[in-house]
Amino acid sequence: MSADSSGLKRPRYPMPDFVKNALDERGLMLAYKQRPDYQQNDYIGWIDRAKRQETKEKRLLQMLDELEAGGVYMNMKHPASEKG
């Protein structure tokens, strides 16, 4: 993979269908797209690198919960994404 026009220096991970479906089902695609490119990419890479399916699902749920709550990124405070 090569860097794309988003300015990321790391490879851009393609979004797996199960992640896209989960974002659509929970109505969180907009919240996902509003996050910086590096966060979108980190979430996808982190989820997809899990070896076990149950770990992928656990990570996916964490991402969805963080997007829904706002103000959190990878269990860290992220004031820029807080919901008002």
Results as ranks from 00 to 15, higher is better:
residue 71 G to W: 02
residue 74 M to C: 09
residue 33 K to G: 00
residue 24 D to N: 07
residue 29 M to Y: 07
residue 40 Q to C: 05
residue 73 Y to C: 05
residue 78 H to S: 09
residue 42 D to E: 11
residue 1 M to G: 08
residue 32 Y to T: 04
residue 55 T to H: 05
residue 65 D to K: 12
residue 32 Y to P: 05
residue 25 E to H: 10
residue 32 Y to Q: 07
residue 33 K to F: 07
residue 83 K to Y: 07
residue 54 E to K: 14
residue 71 G to V: 02
residue 30 L to R: 12
residue 51 K to H: 11
residue 18 F to N: 04
residue 67 L to I: 03
residue 9 K to A: 15
residue 35 R to I: 05
residue 28 L to C: 01
residue 61 L to C: 09
residue 25 E to W: 09
residue 42 D to C: 13
residue 58 K to V: 01
residue 61 L to P: 00
residue 61 L to G: 11
residue 81 S to Y: 04
residue 67 L to N: 07
residue 36 P to C: 09
residue 77 K to A: 13
residue 9 K to P: 14
residue 27 G to A: 04
residue 42 D to S: 12
residue 17 D to M: 15
residue 57 E to L: 11
residue 5 S to P: 13
residue 22 A to H: 04
residue 14 P to V: 09
residue 67 L to E: 09
residue 2 S to W: 15
residue 28 L to W: 07
residue 30 L to E: 13
residue 50 A to P: 05
residue 80 A to T: 12
residue 24 D to M: 03
residue 30 L to V: 12
residue 70 G to D: 06
residue 61 L to Q: 14
residue 81 S to Q: 04
residue 8 L to A: 09
residue 24 D to T: 03
residue 27 G to Y: 00
residue 51 K to A: 10
residue 81 S to T: 05
residue 23 L to C: 00
residue 3 A to G: 15
residue 5 S to V: 15
residue 44 I to N: 04
residue 15 M to W: 10
residue 82 E to T: 15
residue 64 L to V: 00
residue 55 T to A: 04
residue 43 Y to V: 00
residue 5 S to C: 14
residue 24 D to W: 00
residue 75 N to M: 10
residue 61 L to R: 14
residue 27 G to S: 07
residue 9 K to V: 15
residue 5 S to K: 13
residue 53 Q to W: 08
residue 40 Q to D: 00
residue 77 K to I: 09
residue 30 L to A: 12
residue 14 P to E: 10
residue 16 P to G: 01
residue 62 Q to N: 12
residue 35 R to M: 13
residue 29 M to V: 06
residue 65 D to W: 02
residue 3 A to P: 12
residue 36 P to H: 08
residue 13 Y to F: 14
residue 13 Y to C: 08
residue 45 G to Q: 10
residue 63 M to I: 02
residue 34 Q to G: 01
residue 18 F to T: 04
residue 67 L to Y: 01
residue 63 M to R: 03
residue 4 D to F: 13
residue 81 S to F: 07
residue 75 N to Q: 12
residue 73 Y to V: 05
residue 22 A to S: 05
residue 77 K to R: 12
residue 55 T to L: 03
residue 24 D to R: 06
residue 3 A to F: 09
residue 56 K to R: 09
residue 71 G to N: 04
residue 8 L to N: 14
residue 37 D to L: 13
residue 69 A to V: 09
residue 61 L to M: 12
residue 31 A to E: 13
residue 30 L to H: 10
residue 42 D to M: 13
residue 40 Q to T: 04
residue 65 D to F: 03
residue 66 E to A: 00
residue 80 A to L: 15
residue 14 P to I: 07
residue 28 L to Q: 01
residue 14 P to F: 09
residue 53 Q to Y: 08
residue 78 H to Y: 14
residue 14 P to T: 09
residue 55 T to P: 05
residue 43 Y to G: 00
residue 82 E to F: 06
residue 36 P to D: 12
residue 56 K to N: 03
residue 28 L to D: 02
residue 16 P to Y: 02
residue 81 S to A: 02
residue 16 P to K: 01
residue 22 A to V: 08
residue 58 K to T: 07
residue 57 E to P: 06
residue 55 T to I: 06
residue 52 R to M: 15
residue 3 A to H: 10
residue 43 Y to T: 01
residue 72 V to P: 00
residue 19 V to W: 02
residue 56 K to C: 02
residue 67 L to V: 06
residue 2 S to R: 15
residue 40 Q to L: 01
residue 12 R to G: 10
residue 41 N to G: 02
residue 84 G to T: 10
residue 79 P to L: 03
residue 73 Y to G: 02
